[in-house]
Simulated assay, not measured.
Amino acid sequence: MTPLTQMKQGMTGKIVGILNNGHRQQHGHGHGSHHNGATRLREMGFYEGQQVTVLQNRNGSPLLVKLQDSRMVLGRGLAKNILIGSGNV
C-alpha cells in the first residue's frame, strides 16, 4: 500500500484504505466527528475500491486528483491518509 502523496503525476490507482490519525479505519466506524480525516474524505466521496488519478503532485503543494468525473484539490495532510494498492500504482 502506498499513500496517495507518493504517487506521481499521471498515475492511477485503486483506493484500498483510508487512515485516520495513522490508523486504518473501516467504513462506518467513525464517531461522528468532523475533525476525523477519514470521515472528511468519505464526505468528499473517497471510498475503498474507487479509482483515483493524480493530475498534479508537486512537493509541498496540494494534490490535484481526479475521482470519477470530478477534479479535487487535496491538502497533503488529507491525501496521505488515502492508501493505494501496491499493484495499482
Rank of each mutant, 00 (worst) to 15 (best):
S86H: 11
N59W: 02
R58M: 09
L41H: 15
I82N: 04
K8I: 06
G10M: 08
R40T: 03
N88R: 09
K80M: 01
K8G: 13
P62V: 01
L67A: 09
S61P: 05
Q68T: 12
I84D: 01
L67R: 10
S61Y: 13
G85I: 01
G77M: 01
Q25L: 05
L63V: 04
L55E: 10
H23E: 11
L78T: 05
K80H: 02
E43D: 10
Q68D: 12
S70A: 13
T12I: 01
G37M: 12
Q6N: 06
R76N: 06
G28Q: 09
I18D: 12
H34Q: 11
T53L: 04
Q50C: 00
R76G: 03
K66D: 14
V54H: 05
T5I: 14
Q51H: 12
G45H: 11
G60H: 08
Y47D: 11
L67P: 05
G13H: 03
N21L: 01
R71G: 07
Q50A: 04
I84R: 03
Q50R: 08
G85K: 10
G87P: 03
V16E: 06
H35P: 02
G85D: 13
H35N: 07
G28D: 13
Q56N: 12
G30D: 15
Q9V: 01
H29W: 14
D69P: 00
T53P: 02
